[in-house]
Amino acid sequence: PQSTQPPSIPIPPPSHIPHTPINLNIDEGITNLAPFITFNPNLSIFTNQPMMKKIVHLAIDRAIREIITPVVERSVTIAGISTRELIIKDFALEPNEEKMRNAAHLMVQNLAGSLALVTCKEPLRISMVTHLRNLLLQNGYSEQNIPEQAILIVVSDNLELACSFIEKAAMDKAVPEIDESLASSFSNRKKHRERTGQPYYDMTVYSGISRYMSNLPEPLRLKPNGLQPQQLRVYEDFARIPRLSSHAAAIYDDRNSRVGMHRGQDFPIGHLYNTAEMPFDGSQIHIPITAHQ
């Protein structure tokens, strides 16, 4: 963990994701993950047979394709709704649409990324194992000699990579969606200021909550001169939500100081753990949540 103060506009890219422009058009394939796939050097099966690396890449590619759409849609939708509702409430007396937009972006990106990650990890692991097994069976292996151990290890070693791809897709998709769902909030502020020279207040929201404001202490109160930098910090903190187990643990250990932590210094090796089938029809990620948008 770093002890330095975070920059004032912290929008760090998730740094455990390779810093190359990842092509998000899944129709064209996810070929650019290839250089980042890890092969345990102790597994001769991968070092001796160049074909194997291609098969692993293809299995990861197929597993991602299978899962990415429902996971990203669900995560972006939920994160977008929560962000919209809380931002509209908290920024009712903030006339500066750029401050509002910045806070909304930080919140929605990081909520969507976190949700996508926690949702995709287990299905992705199972799917990677399945695709890898099937591809090996189609390429000369039989049920008797299939390298189960190697499959589990290579999937474990690359699970974070595959997850971070989906996480990144969710973070990227969340931004234009929140811009769209808050578009009128942003334009009302801008138009009102340009037309009247006066700051805009969202009175339809504020009139509902004004009666709670009078007793509140300063940091919790919305005031006509807009939000204070100290208040905006709450939203900047969304950029510091940990994504890796090691970082989460470090944040809790280090919580006595405000940690300006950047994500992604190492890749913990995933363990294998029990999976329980969902006893309802279909997997949980396929049930849409469209009824309440």
Binding site: L86, K89, D90, L115, Y212, V234, Y235
Partner: peptide, 14 residues
């Protein structure tokens, strides 16, 4: 209704 409290609690969860 307090500014930022729900956002802060959501950070705790995530």
């Amino acid at each position: 209704h307090s500014f930022g409290v729900m956002a802060a609690l959501l950070q705790e969860i995530v």
